[in-house]
Structures are given as structure tokens and as C-alpha cells.
Computed example of a mutant assay.
Amino acid sequence: MKIAVIGATGGTGRRVMDRALALGHEIIGVARRPESLSPEEGITVRKGDVLDEQSMVNAITGADVVISCIGPPSNLSPESAAKNLGNIRAGIHTIAANFSPGTVMSDGIPNIVSACQRTGVKRIVMQSGINLSDGKELSLFNGLAVCLMRSIFRKAIQDKSKAEQALIQSELDWVIVRASVLQYAEGTSHYTAGPLARINPLGALPFEDCADCLVRAATSEPEWTRKIVNVGR
């Protein structure tokens, strides 16, 4: 299967490519700054700006499925977070990005949807966050935690909510994957995922495990089609 990974330079996007390659899939790595990706066997690198619909059309042409890993820019590379700053300072950058998220998701996802429709791509997987949940499927404590985070990160929630609605209202075979807090750590493959899955929103999940779930949603979980999936501990 040929998978277009949008946001390929991010913490999850890079790991999505690695996981999909390990499973034998062909990758189109889409990035606004493609020079930051090193071409390798099985990966075609393409320039793509999610704020430009035609750019997305050009980037995903020929793909069988799209995985979107876009999110608020943190101005922090995964390598810097993993090697130099550690999870605490990386978390600070992520929190700062969520206070000023911009409109990359609310403007970008509709462009990706339109590009899928124009290029004939039927399936799309979107990485989102557990804070978009109303918390009803979670434990009482975790539901309260989500409500608190929704209040704190109100701007980011609004941006992601508009993005989710654009996908839900489309006719595509979409899957929205709402992940818990993510961390730069080695994956374990021991995580919980599924529609209405009861997870701990504050339980850190390695990017690798989130990436594994996204690839599953794209390639091997047909029962997740047109559903919101929670992933975490």
C-alpha cells in the first residue's frame, strides 16, 4: 500500500514512516520543508503545504491512503527533544504551541480533505488529541482531567474541533485517532486503542506507539472506519 504521511518531519510523522516501512508499505513523505527529510528506499519525499490545497493535491497524488500528523508548530525538532532537551522541556514547547496553535489544523484538514477528493484517495487517518473528548467514556477522574485541559487549551481545542468536523462531514473513509499525552521514548506496543477506549489522558504514550496505531487505522482496522479511536495507556 502507498501511504502519504503529511507532517512527516514531526515527532509522530517520522515514526509513522518508520513503522509503515517496516510493514512493507511504500511511503510518500510530505513536508513543508522536504530538505529536512533524508530520501531512502521506500520513501518518496514531496513538498507540501497544508494551507495550500493545490500543494496537497500535488503531494498526495498516487497515494492509496493519507495519514495526517499535522499539529500546532512547536519549533522543536524531535532530535532536539530526544537528545538534548528531554521530555520535560519538550513538553514545555508543546504546551506553548497549544496556547498559540494558529489555524494549521482548522485550515489544513479541509485542504487535505479536498485534495483526497480530487485525487481519488478514499481513506484518511487524522491524528488528534484525547482533549477533544467530552470525557464521558473515561473514568470520573480522567473525565474531569480532560474537561480541565479543554478549558486550559481552549484555542487549540477549537482549532482541532473544526478540523475534526471537516473530516466527519466529508464522504471519505476517515478515522480520527485521539492520543493521550505523547513522549519521546521507546515504543512498547503495549497500549489501548479503539472507539470509546478507556485510557488515561495524562498517561504518557511513546510517539512510536501512537504511530503504530495510526498505521493500523490506515491499513488493517476496517472496523474503525468513520469512527473516533482513543489511544493511550
Rank of each mutant, 00 (worst) to 15 (best):
I3N: 07
L23C: 01
L23E: 15
G187W: 11
L182P: 00
S180T: 15
G24V: 01
L202M: 15
R33Q: 13
A197T: 04
P201Y: 06
T103P: 00
L205Q: 03
D64E: 14
R150Q: 13
A90F: 00
D18K: 13
Q165D: 12
V65Q: 06
G135N: 01
R46A: 03
G86C: 11
S151F: 13
I92R: 10
L172N: 10
P195V: 02
A156E: 06
A166S: 15
I95G: 08
E40C: 08
I43V: 15
N58S: 13
A185N: 07
I157S: 01
C213G: 09
W224A: 03
I199K: 03
E164M: 07
V5E: 03
I28K: 05
A211E: 08
Q127V: 13
G194L: 03
D49K: 07
I43L: 05
S170C: 13
L85S: 06
A59Q: 04
I152R: 06
T94C: 03
G102H: 03
R32C: 12
S55C: 12
Q127D: 02
V175S: 06
V125D: 08
Q165P: 00
I199S: 04
S106W: 03
A185Q: 09
V5H: 02
I92A: 14
C210V: 14
N111I: 10
V57I: 14
L21M: 06
A31V: 07
F207C: 10
R14Y: 00
L144C: 02
T225H: 04
G24S: 06
A197S: 10
G42P: 00
N131T: 12
N142T: 05
C116H: 07
L21C: 03
P39Y: 00
R15H: 05
G194W: 08
V65L: 10
L172W: 06
Q54M: 11
I43Y: 00
D134N: 12
I3C: 04
L132R: 02
L21I: 03
N58F: 04
F99A: 12
D64S: 13
S220N: 11
A81F: 00
S139T: 15
R216N: 13
K122Q: 14
V231E: 06
